[in-house]
Design a protein around this nucleic acid. Sequence first.
DNA 1: CTGACTTTGTGCGCGCGTTCACAAGCGCGT
DNA 2: ACGCGCTTGTGAACGCGCGCACAAAGTCAG
Lengths: 231, 231
Amino acid sequence: MDASNLPEDALATPVPRRREVVPEATVARLPIYLRALHGLADEGQTTVSSEALAEAAGVNSAKLRKDLSHLGSYGTRGVGYDVDHLIAQISRELGLSRRCSVVLVGVGNLGRALAGYGGFASRGLAIDALLDADRSRVGEQIAGLTVRHMDDLPDVVTGVSIGVIATPADAAQEVCDRLVSAGVTSILNFAPTVLSVPSHVDLRKVDLSIELQILSFHEHRKAARAEGALA
Amino acid sequence: MDASNLPEDALATPVPRRREVVPEATVARLPIYLRALHGLADEGQTTVSSEALAEAAGVNSAKLRKDLSHLGSYGTRGVGYDVDHLIAQISRELGLSRRCSVVLVGVGNLGRALAGYGGFASRGLAIDALLDADRSRVGEQIAGLTVRHMDDLPDVVTGVSIGVIATPADAAQEVCDRLVSAGVTSILNFAPTVLSVPSHVDLRKVDLSIELQILSFHEHRKAARAEGALA
DNA sequence: CTGACTTTGTGCGCGCGTTCACAAGCGCGT
DNA sequence: ACGCGCTTGTGAACGCGCGCACAAAGTCAG
Ligand SMILES: NC(=O)c1ccc[n+]([C@@H]2O[C@H](COP(=O)([O-])OP(=O)(O)OC[C@H]3O[C@@H](n4cnc5c(N)ncnc54)[C@H](O)[C@@H]3O)[C@@H](O)[C@H]2O)c1
Ligand SMILES: NC(=O)c1ccc[n+]([C@@H]2O[C@H](COP(=O)([O-])OP(=O)(O)OC[C@H]3O[C@@H](n4cnc5c(N)ncnc54)[C@H](O)[C@@H]3O)[C@@H](O)[C@H]2O)c1
């Protein structure tokens, strides 16, 4: 990609020190740090050391420091990090300061649970619209939102950036395509299917069956190892 | 590691070829291959090339071949892999042949959706018990199962190996500890908390807020890049 | 002001995972 | 029987991410 070298740019960008790129692995941990920090803030802590925060987040302290260093030098040596300031910086980095809207497609068993979940709003994320293809569900009120028909999608997604797919697997690709056509550039997929999207669209998936199968594998291996130990 | 030269090992291990260890990254993809293979089998395909299967699974074909090579040489050069045979091998490796039972704790919004989900059973996994601490929910019938009280846990988990936590975050660690005490050695956690478990217990987590925050980050970066492009 | 202590930020080596590229192997047509 | 084309299995190179360990940098006591 255009990860071109930054040739020192003698023309000096006015901004002193721009964050180069934040590694994916770091991005995936920032929300964990954020949650831990909120917990500390609620306890009244004003500063926290990398050691303590790492403990709360369940990671190595060196990793934590390296992660945070990618967003800038916000710590004070000998003291630690200012909790509120760090919350602000991570929130900004994650784009949570400007409220991010979400559209959920498929109001079935799972969709209902997600729509009613309050855990998103507390983090600057909120589900703004519910869509379904089943006309018998359209008009239904769930968690203060009215279910709208799939055909309304173009009207709904103005300014919306994240789409969540909670439809059956065989409808997922079609729904995905329609989301993309409507301008959605980030998608979270719960349907057990491989989706294909244009390169400018970010796609993540959550597959509960896969998680259980991975655990099943480890159980299987533990059992095999135990038998092997008998021999 | 000991990726030392393999000096032809004149001492020839008696066992022809034992699967050494299957890398974690490979294990995480096996369920995807399995799903793709089931789809192919339903279409009547009897054999499949690594190229075609990789396409269906959304991965690089070399990666697929290397993954499969960790379970043995089950392909035929010039032809590909036998679909049914490969399904059997992967299922065996994942431990899905011997049916794996699951206990779900916390029958709230999310727990209900999970309990009613039929996508597990088709893969040799089935939820065998539902538990909750709320006595007003005990006795309730969900998807053919009766909700039992948390205190029955020791009776319920005989032979059960996988526990799923779908309780509020502040109860998760306690529930986790009780599962471990009862002998559960694999846990899937949906609560947004860092859990600690003994080293012999496998722990995985699914956190929807984190997924959305990661997408939010990428949206934020896209927006920043777009602005940068204007300058 | 100085010195000791605390904690950050990071250079470095290492191991894992991904990918390319190709030789070895197998079936099929002739 | 024999080579031709297709596909697997893997050697090797590369890049990323992790974690140790330490120097730099700041605080605080006296
Ligand atoms: N329920 C769970 O706990 C669970 C667990 C893991 C995975 N999943 C997956 O999540 C998805 C949803 O599961 P569910 O249990 O909620 O299913 P569901 O059948 O209860 O709900 C699906 C919803 O999608 C709607 N829908 C169908 N086609 C549509 C389309 N083309 N456009 C818009 N909406 C459409 C349906 O009307 C329905 O309301 C499935 O892919 C399932 O495999 C669910
Ligand atoms: N609902 C969602 O879509 C969603 C999304 C993401 C994450 N989550 C997380 O999943 C978890 C469950 O969410 P929910 O919406 O189903 O919550 P919920 O409040 O609807 O259900 C929680 C259930 O757990 C039970 N419970 C409470 N304490 C318990 C204990 N000590 N032992 C056993 N059971 C106990 C409660 O009685 C209740 O039935 C929460 O941690 C939530 O943050 C939910």
